[in-house]
Computed example of a mutant assay.
Amino acid sequence: MNNITLPSPHKILDVIHETNAEYTFRVAYDDHDNIMYGQFFQLSIPKVGEAPISVSGKGDKWLEFTIRKVGKLTNGIFGLQPGDMVFMRGPYGNYFPVDEFKSKDLVVIAGGTGLAAVRALLNHFYEYPEEIKSVNFIAGFKDINSVLFEYDLKKFKTKFNAIYTLDNTREDGFETGMVTAYIEKIPFSTFKDYNVIIVGPPVMMHFAAKECLARGAEESKIWVSLERKMSCAVGKCGHCKINGTYICLDGPIFNYTRAKDLID
């Protein structure tokens, strides 16, 4: 019987410095084809701790994890270099229903590091544009020094209807203001069949969903990720439990018809 809580060592292949506070770690992993968009792993360092991290990219025998330096574990991970080992267990959680997205219009609204949870999905539709009718993409960041995946953002603009925003500053290629201010530019009235993905800080997801609904989107067409609440990943610690729902077991991806009631 497999022990779902037992981590195994994986070699770090590369470390990409996205910003001063976020690094992307490319890690050796053989079974990448069976990782679904939206799933996560528990990354750990022995005697330091562990944390749930979404898969931000995948390729031939590797996975990528984009990590923000916010605590004891992540501080330790930031000290690792290519060739070092990081311990992992997973994958855990459900995933975005990609098959339901195909041949339809897709809207993706991401705030800050929430972009990491949908980056691999966006790259999939960038590589296979024939699978999707259109992609309308809005990504917001605090300032220019917080912008993630600059290379990806540039290429996404060549195939997606993309808008990038900075909260309070002006820079070439970026609008100024919160992502919610630009949802009015999404042509919901022209969509016959569509889906909406919203990922980011809880407040941002709340108001972005409300704005989409005000613009005519249906609750059943909206999907969100509640990954920030997770801890043990296997439903034992209770950290992510809201009423009778365990985010790590029942999520982290939820349809808005259910997610709207998952409030602490």
Rank of each mutant, 00 (worst) to 15 (best):
G90Q: 01
V108F: 09
G83S: 08
S103M: 13
K69V: 06
Y92C: 04
V98A: 12
G71T: 00
G57T: 08
W62T: 04
D84Q: 03
R68C: 12
K58T: 02
L80A: 05
D84N: 11
I77W: 00
S54I: 07
S54L: 11
R68I: 14
D105W: 01
G49L: 01
Q81I: 11
K61R: 15
S103I: 06
S54W: 03
V98C: 13
I77K: 02
G57V: 05
M85H: 14
I67Y: 01
Y92Q: 05
P82E: 06
G112H: 00
D84M: 02
L115I: 07
R68H: 14
D84S: 06
Q81R: 14
L80N: 05
P91S: 13
A51L: 14
S103Y: 14
L106G: 07
A110C: 14
E64V: 05
A110Q: 10
I53F: 09
S103G: 13
G59F: 07
E100R: 15
Y95Q: 13
V98I: 15
P52E: 08
S54D: 05
D99H: 14
K102Y: 10
L80I: 06
G49S: 09
G79D: 13
K47R: 14
Y92S: 00
D99M: 11
L80E: 02
G79Q: 14
W62E: 05
T113C: 11
V70K: 08
K61S: 15
I53G: 02
E64H: 07
M88T: 07
W62A: 04
V55S: 02
K69G: 00
G49Q: 06
G83C: 09
F65I: 08
V108N: 06
L63C: 09
E50T: 06
A110D: 10
R89H: 10
G57A: 14
V70Y: 05
D60E: 14
Y95G: 08
E50H: 11
K69H: 10
L115M: 12
V108M: 12
F87E: 12
I67S: 01
A110L: 12
P52L: 08
F101N: 03
V107N: 01
A110F: 09
G112T: 00
L63Y: 07
R68A: 14
V98P: 09
L106W: 01
Y92A: 07
F101Y: 15
K47E: 15
D84E: 06
A51W: 01
L106K: 01
Y95A: 15
L115R: 03
V55C: 10
V48R: 09
G83N: 09
E100C: 13
T113H: 01
I67K: 01
V48A: 08
E100K: 15
V70G: 07
G79K: 13
G71N: 04
P91C: 10
R68V: 14
L115Q: 03
Y92E: 05
P91E: 06
G71Y: 03
R89Q: 12
Y95R: 12
T66R: 04
P82Q: 05
M85W: 10
E64C: 08
V70W: 01
L73I: 15
P46M: 06
N75G: 11
K72F: 06
G49V: 04
M88D: 03
F96M: 10
W62P: 03
I53S: 00
K69M: 10
V98D: 09
Q81W: 11
G112A: 01
K104Q: 13
L80D: 04
